[in-house]
Design a protein around this nucleic acid. Structure first.
Length: 880
RNA sequence: GCCGGGAUGGCGGAACUGGUAGACGCACCGGACUCAAAAUCCGGCGGUGGUGACAUCGUGGGGGUUCGAUUCCCCCUCCCGGCACCA
């Protein structure tokens, strides 16, 4: 074997071997040979151009798990594909005058080569791209099924409208309330669109979270809060207007405070607001003002709360009091009925609103020992657990639950309300006024209306040669796409030009991977592979993508297409990859970003960073902390250059070692070098073993049969002890400590005692076993290095067996035993030394030995022990 | 604003169910090798006091529970992710 570690040679050889042996083709049925299936899936990438470090991290984690489970005896499947529709392709098209399709396919072929150079154990025979008609036709097909079942339907939606470009903007394209290209103030506009009735599944999506024991608690909590089941009361304020009786319906979770209502507020889009504005120009102007700005909830929630009275009054359903109706810019038309009751005394937002506009504040809940004040908001005003009703007539003295019950009953008796369960979750709007997406299979006929495209005319194929220009949807200008005949009456008709949200594409790709090439949406192979055993992706997908996929699965199940309830049995949410940010203020007040390799750091004597300067001009730059790698901040590191400089194994090892998968990972060039150094040491020691030790190996191995000399027993014990911990850590997905275990193991093996009367054959045997364990432990993380060493050192347990199919190593218990153990000695909880005791000693014996120890006697200073706490195998604490 | 998460040496991080805080690595310092440098190898490395054994403080800040708290509870600060048309 080569005495030096040459990653490119090692990696090319390993990859050639895997290709030749078709090592990563997943098998089904009899070919699975009775092994349990393990479907390991990383979230597929958007083909943005080239891989970024987040991809490398994501796919390395998936690959480590895939290879680990394979060695554990599973029938593994790890597919890969492309989330190929989306906005960036249209942006690139505008910039480069290249059709999104070409840009996308070019990116895919480049990124595929990059993924292959990482040595991922991917079954490429299952590759798919969501922009291919034989994939997205099933989006269209299922859309039609959902339409038939009433799960898909049409209604108006509120969008960001750029009045200059005359186009709908994505939230991302709205910067500070203005269009990103035109700078025009964005308006809210209502247009028709298709929705998926995810709320029909709200109950199950919530309750089934309890069955997802393989999901992180935080993701389940986020989804539960997002679905947002709340128990409250929906009730009405009657009014009379234009000589007609009407009712203003509101929803509240705080019905116990209903006696404190001093105003109502409606959304600007509410019919009552429109009616009031009819003869109130000031109000009309205010409503118009509310139309400006983005539709993002974060913007709505942080903007200044403004309101204006409508001059209309409604009647309090219980007190009969006249209550004025206001228009509030903070009231969401999309939640509940687009109107809220205002209780300034017990709602922080209402309090601020009332203070601002001089509305009455009426206390109706009190907490014993707390004084109510009109001057400043207090947390307890809104604490429904502790208070009871006051100033509330017949409800006085009731706690939250009793008050809600009594009030709901009274409202019900009057026919003006009842208890109601409310969801925060809204139906999923899927229409996008964009070109590069899956066409919605609808035809608009002047006579028949909206007509679904018949199944036998699917797929509705998207033309791939359009170049968008930023104003409107280019599809609308393509008569060869738009003009068609009505499937019902045959008359000339227009095809729908909206495309589907790209979240639709990613809501079921995992199932298609399990039935590649099927002539139906999925086939029986999906029944074998699904659900995904391990799903891996960024935490930023914790809600939308994962919730939509769960919803989509339940729809497919109810259509009889699949029989599982949930798509992802286990979920690992990986953290982001961060890097340092360096900036300089420009003369014009802008910010200039410097890539980390354009900056030289100044260190003090202890190695602490005390300054930075530009390599180019030697002038100082500011260190702006750490942030996600991004093009705009110029702090990204190109995986390609990393692989070229150090090899894929170093990139993989560094990624796993630098941080546990769920946490953020901070980039460090020197730590990458550290990873490389380690891999080189492994290789070099392998060479030393092959040349210096292996020749002494006895033909019949006796390891474990008899007692080893103490030095070798200690080495062997260390190796097995570290392995035991590493196996435990693997189960926790804590790959950083697995990597560090491999380092510890090498540290121990490198110090292998030699000479001193030790039989060289015995030394070689202990080292061979240690290397066999180390190489297998490393193989999921650094598969090329492991493949090379396994072969070159002849470590295979069965002839011809590659390391990727070798059995996972388990610690040998007999190698771990020891006669004496060391316990930590504490006095009053403070470390005061240690005490050696026989491994078999019982509590009484340990107490005695501890009390008699030199360290204890000194620390006790003649005082008597009140109590002795013994934690077996760990410590003794003497309480004096 | 709302929901979720995080904070440990100069840095990334470790610490099993409450039991030796700082494993492993990086950086830095010292030594060996070298004409010299790089690479490599050996040693040191939280703060303060002490020649030293050792003492003492120390896991974002404040309080609590416990023989014992990075870990559990309460309050606060800052940072990160999501907020429905980025993917």
């Amino acid at each position: 074997m080569q005495p030096q570690y040459q990653p490119s040679a090692v990696e090319q050889a390993a990859q050639a071997w895997w290709t030749e042996h078709r090592s990563f083709l997943a098998r089904e049925g009899a070919e699975a040979k009775g092994r349990p299936k393990y479907y390991c899936l990383s979230m597929f990438p958007y083909p943005s151009g080239k891989l970024h470090m987040g991809h490398v991290r994501n796919y390395t984690i998936g690959d480590v798990l895939t290879r680990y489970h394979r060695m554990r005896g599973h029938n593994v499947m790890q597919p890969m594909g492309w989330d190929a529709f989306g906005l960036p392709a249209e942006n690139a098209a505008m910039q480069n005058q290249v059709p999104p399709a070409k840009w996308t396919y070019d990116n895919i072929s480049y990124m595929k080569r990059q993924l292959q150079s990482l040595g991922l154990a991917i079954d490429w025979s299952r590759e798919l791209a969501t922009c291919q008609p034989d994939y997205y036709r099933w989006n269209q097909w299922l859309f039609l099924r959902m339409l038939e079942k009433g799960i898909a339907y049409k209604k108006t939606q509120v969008v960001n409208w750029d009045p200059v470009d005359q186009t709908v903007l994505a939230n991302e394209q709205v910067i500070d309330g203005r269009g990103w290209r035109t700078g025009a103030v964005v308006e809210k506009r209502e247009i028709p669109g298709y929705y998926f009735g995810i709320t029909q599944y709200a109950d199950e999506l919530l309750s089934a979270l309890d069955t997802l024991s393989g999901w992180p608690e935080r993701v389940r909590t986020m989804q539960a809060n997002w679905i947002g089941k709340s128990h409250g009361v929906r009730f009405a304020f009657p009014y009379e207007l234009d000589a007609k009786a009407g009712q203003l319906w509101v929803y509240t979770t705080r019905a116990d405070t209903i006696m404190g209502v001093t105003f109502c507020a409606v959304a600007a889009e509410h019919p009552l607001a429109a009616r009031a504005a009819r003869d109130n120009p000031a109000l009309a102007a205010f409503i118009d003002e509310c139309r400006h700005g983005s539709v993002m909830e974060a913007d709505m929630a942080t903007m200044e709360k403004k309101g204006m009275p409508t001059g209309l009054f409604v009647t309090h359903p219980l007190t009969g009091a006249r209550v004025e109706v206001w228009v509030g810019n903070y009231v969401l038309m999309t939640y509940g009925d687009g109107a809220v009751m205002g209780v300034p005394a017990h709602d922080e937002r209402d309090f601020a609103f009332a203070k601002k506009y001089g509305i009455d504040i009426r206390q109706v809940v009190s907490v014993a020992g707390k004084d109510f004040s009109l001057d400043a908001w207090q947390e307890w005003y809104a604490d429904k657990e502790k208070g009871s009703c006051v100033n509330s007539g017949r409800y006085d003295g009731l706690g939250y639950l009793q008050a809600v019950d009594a009030i709901a009953a009274d409202l019900k008796a009057k026919g003006l309300g009842d208890k109601q369960v409310q969801w925060r979750l809204r139906d999923w709007g899927v229409s996008r006024q964009r070109y590069w997406g899956c066409p919605i299979p609808i035809i608009h006929c002047p006579a028949c209306g909206d007509v679904p495209v018949p199944d036998d005319q699917l797929p509705v194929v998207l033309p791939e040669d359009c170049v968008p220009d930023g104003s409107g949807n280019p599809l609308a200008r393509r008569s060869d796409f738009v003009d068609c005949n009505c499937p019902k009456c045959g008359a000339a008709a227009k095809r729908e030009t909206d495309t589907m949200d790209t979240f639709v594409d990613s809501s079921w790709y995992y199932a298609r991977f399990a039935s590649p090439g099927a002539s139906t949406m999925v086939d029986e192979r999906a029944a074998y592979w699904m659900p995904v055993d391990q799903y891996i992706g960024g935490i930023e997908h914790a809600i939308l993508h994962l919730l939509y996929s769960r919803f989509w699965t339940k729809v497919m199940r109810d259509l009889g297409l699949v029989s599982y309830d949930e798509p992802f049995a286990n979920l690992l949410t990986q953290g982001m990859v961060l890097n340092h940010i360096f900036t300089r203020r420009t003369d014009k007040g802008g910010i200039q970003y410097f890539a980390p390799d354009e900056v030289e750091l100044a260190l003090d004597a202890a190695g602490k960073v005390i300054g930075a300067k530009s390599v180019a001009d030697g002038q100082p730059v500011n260190y702006d902390g750490i942030g996600t790698m991004s093009k705009s901040k110029r702090n990204g590191v190109d995986p390609q250059s990393l692989i070229e400089a150090y090899g894929a194994d170093t990139a993989r090892f560094y990624m796993m070692f630098a941080s546990p998968p769920e946490q953020t990972l901070e980039w460090s060039d020197s730590s990458v070098e550290g990873a490389y150094r380690f891999l080189r040491r492994v290789w070099v020691f392998g060479h030393r073993f092959a040349t210096e030790m292996k020749p002494h190996l006895p033909s019949v191995r006796t390891l474990g049969a008899g007692a080893l000399p103490p030095e070798l027993a200690a080495l062997r014990r260390e190796v097995h002890l570290v392995l035991k911990q590493a196996n435990f850590d693997f189960g926790k997905f804590q790959f950083n400590t697995v990597a560090s275990a491999a380092m510890k193991m090498l540290n121990a093996i490198e110090k292998v005692p030699a000479g001193g009367g030790l039989a060289p054959g015995m030394v070689a045997e202990v080292v061979e076993e240690a290397l066999s364990i180390l190489v297998r432990l490393l193989s999921p993380i650094t598969p090329h290095l492991a493949h090379g060493l396994w072969t070159e050192l002849g470590l295979a347990l069965e002839a011809g067996q590659a390391v990727l199919d070798a059995p996972w190593p388990e610690p040998v218990e007999s190698a771990l035993v020891q006669d004496e153990i060391e316990l930590v000695l504490q006095v009053n909880g403070k470390l005061r030394g240690s005490v050696r005791v026989p491994a078999s000693a019982d509590k009484a014996a340990i107490e005695q030995l501890a009390l008699a120890s030199e360290a204890a006697v000194r620390a006790m200073d003649g005082k008597a022990a009140k109590r002795v706490v013994v934690v077996p195998g760990r410590l003794v604490n003497i309480v004096a």
